[in-house]
Design a protein around this nucleic acid. Sequence first.
DNA 1: TGTACATCAGTGAACGCGCGTTCACTGATGTAC
DNA 2: TGTACATCAGTGAACGCGCGTTCACTGATGTAC
Lengths: 207, 207
Amino acid sequence: MDTVTRPYHHGDLAAALVDAAEEELTEKGIEGFSLRGVAKRAGVSHAAPAHHFVDMQGLLTAVATRGFERFVRRQADFRRRADSDARSQLVASGLGYVVFAMESPALFRLMFGSNRTNFKNADLARSAGKAYDDLVHHVAKLRMEGHSQHELHGSTRDVDLMRHVAAIWAVAHGLADLLVAGRLDSIGTLSAKLKREAIAEVLRRVI
Amino acid sequence: MDTVTRPYHHGDLAAALVDAAEEELTEKGIEGFSLRGVAKRAGVSHAAPAHHFVDMQGLLTAVATRGFERFVRRQADFRRRADSDARSQLVASGLGYVVFAMESPALFRLMFGSNRTNFKNADLARSAGKAYDDLVHHVAKLRMEGHSQHELHGSTRDVDLMRHVAAIWAVAHGLADLLVAGRLDSIGTLSAKLKREAIAEVLRRVI
DNA sequence: TGTACATCAGTGAACGCGCGTTCACTGATGTAC
DNA sequence: TGTACATCAGTGAACGCGCGTTCACTGATGTAC
């Protein structure tokens, strides 16, 4: 591919548009995001995206899909560096959750707090579902440990598991959202290193 | 005041605009919110708001300020109906927090997840600060109960209190945000009554 | 009590802007024969 | 290997729209004397 004179055809504009859209999102925020800005960023006329994505929601859905994939990986990164007992693994997941949000606040908000994506889209549903399944898996593991003989069974147990999942998800998500929003000064103003320690400490308190 | 022929002067347009802005917010969401829409809703020309609010941020700051006042009152409502021990009071506050968010999702997002308000505004800072102070107060009370002789003191104790506050705030906020966003199906799909019970149960698990 | 005048609140037309979308087009690529 | 043609990807001008803001204005109110 000639890198000096730009070829008329891009090669992989669809992927380039997703990259550009994420940049645009990071710089302009969800409000202020525009298709024309994305096209400009990708070095392409503003009418070009229409050939690859139906509309803005389609593009942002693709961005969110890739966001969830990275979100899942980021949590796995943190798990790998943690102790292998279920509790440490879950705390590490939570830390990954919050760190991801702080690293990519606009993307995080797109993924969790926006009407601009289509969660009925199969790809997005799958990648977001993976994140949820991971969470449930690790909570279930935590509950197994030390409870080798199951004391509860059937639907009672399921409901209790779901409440347990909700509690842990809520702490991680609440920390993430409050930090991204700039509330929680008591943690938000710490240096990067101390911030992570404080977050882990709060998570450990609940998990 | 003549109610048949509209008087040229409104009487209290500033307050009417805040009302209208909250309606607009509820119906259109933060995205889709416009000053012109608010003016129309208040039955006034679209240039009129400029006489009362510098710009959109000024108006939304007033909306958020009133939002926090109602937020604080809603939590107090729930506390009044709860047992008087510190733990029950804190769970009730949390339930009020989450219920408020579900009752006014767009307002909740304006208050907690938006760049469109000015938190340096004295009124907004005061009303948001009141909500935070209430939280700290009730967490501190919880820590007093059963620990009449203080085992920790000085800055160590302060840091620990702040972590405790962060944990409890995060669960309530996380539940609220996830429910508003339509995640957390396991709770979100329940009837109103069961939903509150489930939320209280999750809060009690952590608090 | 009446008059003159300053101040204030709301009007409505006009502005420039960036947006998403449409459309006829053109350049590049791939395939059939 | 070469030619004809269909298909695909990207262009750029044009559109209509709703937005926030500005501005000269007018109607209502309050105050000084």
